[in-house]
Simulated scan of single mutants.
Amino acid sequence: MTLALALPAAAAPERLTVELNKLEQIDGGGCRAFFLFRNETGKSFEGFEMSLAILDGKGVIDRLLSIDAAPLPVARTTLKLFEIPDIACSDISEMLLHEVTACRPQNEDEMDCFEILDLTSKTPTALVK
């Protein structure tokens, strides 16, 4: 006689993935950054802002860029575009997550989202914590 035990399925980790998907040169100077936000947290976010340090081709911080990506609906991938003025896309070597300045799930208190973030890039420019 074989006894089969049902084991509970492991819960999928709640993650918010931020992907730098594409950089596009803007006429007249500047760079447009295309970000995909994949919200697999089980929560919708009515507030989500982050500060990125933009590093030039020599690895020197050129500026800080504030990104307001809210709202981020639950179980959705959201596209957001941001313009970075006065720098060529080819001159951006890295984007460093400096700070998550707001992370507020809908109908909940502000939370620390740093630990649930996964950062990726499909461009030659790295997106890192």
Results as ranks from 00 to 15, higher is better:
L3E: 14
L3C: 03
L3I: 10
L3D: 11
A4W: 03
A4Q: 12
L5F: 15
A6F: 13
A6M: 08
A6N: 13
L7C: 12
L7S: 14
A12R: 06
E14A: 14
R15D: 03
R15E: 04
L16T: 06
T17G: 08
V18R: 07
V18Y: 01
V18H: 12
N21S: 08
K22F: 01
Q25N: 03
Q25M: 07
I26F: 02
I26G: 00
I26D: 03
D27N: 13
D27R: 12
G29L: 05
G29D: 06
G29N: 10
G30W: 10
G30F: 11
C31V: 00
R32H: 04
A33F: 03
A33M: 08
F35G: 08
L36K: 13
L36V: 09
F37I: 05
F37D: 08
R38D: 07
E40D: 14
E40P: 05
T41L: 02
S44R: 08
S44V: 00
F45R: 01
E46T: 07
E49R: 13
S51L: 14
S51T: 14
A53V: 08
I54V: 15
L55P: 02
L55W: 05
D56M: 02
D56C: 01
G57R: 09
I61L: 11
I61E: 11
D62A: 06
R63N: 08
L65M: 08
S66D: 11
S66I: 02
D68F: 02
D68Y: 05
A70S: 15
A70N: 11
A70D: 13
L72T: 09
L72I: 04
L72Y: 03
L72A: 03
P73V: 02
V74N: 15
A75S: 12
R76K: 15
T78Y: 13
T78F: 05
L79G: 02
L79I: 05
K80Y: 06
K80G: 01
K80T: 10
L81Q: 15
F82E: 15
F82K: 10
F82Q: 12
P85W: 02
P85I: 00
I87P: 06
I87R: 06
C89M: 01
C89I: 00
C89L: 04
S90T: 10
D91K: 02
D91F: 00
E94P: 08
E94M: 07
M95T: 04
H98C: 07
H98R: 08
E99V: 01
V100R: 07
V100K: 11
A102Y: 10
A102H: 14
R104D: 10
P105S: 07
Q106V: 01
N107Y: 14
N107F: 15
E110Y: 12
M111Y: 04
M111L: 06
F114P: 03
E115S: 14
I116R: 11
L117C: 05
L117M: 14
L117T: 02
L119T: 09
S121Y: 00
T123A: 00
P124E: 02
